[in-house]
Write a protein that binds this DNA or RNA. Structure first.
Length: 376
RNA sequence: GGGGAGGUUCCAGAGUGGUUAAAUGGGGCAGACUGUAAAUCUGUUGGCUACGCCUUCGGAGGUUCGAAUCCUUCCCUCCCCA
């Protein structure tokens, strides 16, 4: 993997670049659609590529390990083969599930013992095991096994958790460096900064992660319920420490406004379930604001879903029709909304790239941030 | 013609003297959703000059301190047998 920064915005920390992987190039800043169980829900790969302009999608270690399981993934030759996605793939380590499924886990220095949310069976995740699973899945970028702390989080816990995440990272790196990819292309391991909402911990963690000198770095443990200002403060602090010449990945973020603000702080990569999950729940993001397509007010609005939208669904279907689909519980509703939202998210980061290249990013961003959160 | 069941708030459907503006589900309306246990979850759903009042359980009348619940009568549905 290689990262080339093409341009640095003169008015902010925003930059544009290209991550080169064995499955193709990733223009940054980039939004990565989340495909937890080996599928970005409600959309085909063809549409992800041709309509949405997605260049990399996620998969999830915990979910893919439980189903279909590593044996099947090895047998088929990795997730790229299994789900027919031939572009770059990133897998999350299951660290988020340590947080989101906290009530069915037992954690210690060695790792985590989980109870499957599917059948209650017990499974163990350790840094070494998680590296092996991610080798089997075959993501181009794989994530260190960490603990994503909740918010709010006591200082002592945040500190102990961060220190353990650091020790786990050392084990991840050792195991990763002592093993090889299974399918003939290279994989990159990204470490994850933790430290909750405490400045000194974030600084300490960012310095440690930077010292590991991997090919890219991630910021985790944010967007878990803390105020947005706090998230920006932590992101800024950490971005100022993480190396400039390596991609920075802010995990789990976020709203369109969150993404633009974070690009301004020097973040290059984002992923979030928001555009896909909210799409399935009837929410549409546009450059003018947010629409709840279930609302009665759209019942006879026959104008296009989004006149500024870049995917074909934006122009051929009306708001009234999309509202009807959601009202009727028709599956085409979530399908249309998913394509629209992902198309919008990718448009947003690509438009950001254009403005960074033209040194007009900050003015544009400030105007956009005001509009993006509005309810239409 | 004979026998039986029933009419409840938008719908389905509980409730059979007071704690019932009326369970529950659906529908409607609105909200939430940030490295996905999510095509999920939550709230709300008679009216009003509202922390109190008015109108509602097929219609009318009656019993009672009090009726969706009991009585009389009328109207209307559905099922079975001829």
């Amino acid at each position: 993997m290689q990262f080339n920064i093409h341009h640095h915005d003169t008015g902010s920390k925003a930059r544009i670049g290209t991550i080169k992987t064995d499955h193709g190039d990733i223009k940054t800043p980039v939004f990565m659609p989340v495909g937890t169980a080996g599928t970005v829900k409600a959309i085909h790969n063809k549409d992800l590529k041709e309509q949405v302009n997605a260049r990399i999608i996620l998969g999830n270690t915990y979910h893919l390990y439980l189903r279909p399981g590593t044996e099947i993934l090895k047998k088929v030759g990795g997730l790229h083969k299994f789900n027919a996605w031939d572009k770059p793939l990133l897998t999350d380590s299951g660290g988020y599930q340590v947080y989101s499924l906290a009530h069915r886990r037992k954690m210690n220095e060695e790792g985590v013992v989980f109870q499957s949310h599917i059948d209650g069976s017990r499974h163990k995740f350790s840094p070494e095991i998680v590296m092996d699973i991610q080798r089997a899945i075959g993501g181009d970028i794989i994530m260190a096994f960490d603990e994503c702390t909740p918010y709010p989080c006591e200082y002592d816990y945040a500190q102990r958790s961060m220190e353990m995440t650091h020790r786990w990272l050392t084990r991840c790196c050792n195991h990763f460096d002592n093993t090889n990819g299974l399918y003939g292309y290279s994989q990159s391991l990204f470490p994850i900064v933790q430290g909750s909402t405490y400045k000194d911990l974030r600084i300490q963690s960012a310095e440690y992660i930077a010292s590991c000198d991997r090919e890219g770095n991630a910021i985790g443990g944010l967007s878990v319920g803390e105020p947005a200002e706090m998230m920006y403060e932590m992101t800024e602090l950490v971005c100022n420490i993480l190396p400039v010449d390596k991609p920075r990945y802010l995990m789990g973020v976020g709203t369109p406004a969150n993404i633009l603000e974070s690009i301004a702080l020097g973040v290059d990569m984002f992923d979030c379930v928001m555009p896909t999950r909210n799409a399935r729940n009837g929410m549409i993001f546009t450059s003018e604001g947010i629409l709840n397509m279930r609302n009665r007010k759209w019942i006879d609005d026959f104008s296009p879903i989004d006149p500024n939208g870049t995917t074909f669904v934006d122009s051929i279907y009306s708001k009234a029709y999309l509202r009807h689909l959601f009202a009727a519980g028709e599956m085409l509703g979530p399908i249309i909304a998913t394509m629209h939202n992902l198309g919008f998210y990718l448009w947003l980061v690509d438009e950001a790239a254009n403005h960074i290249a033209n040194n007009t990013f900050m003015d544009w961003k400030n105007i956009m941030v005001k509009k993006l959160g509005q309810r239409l």
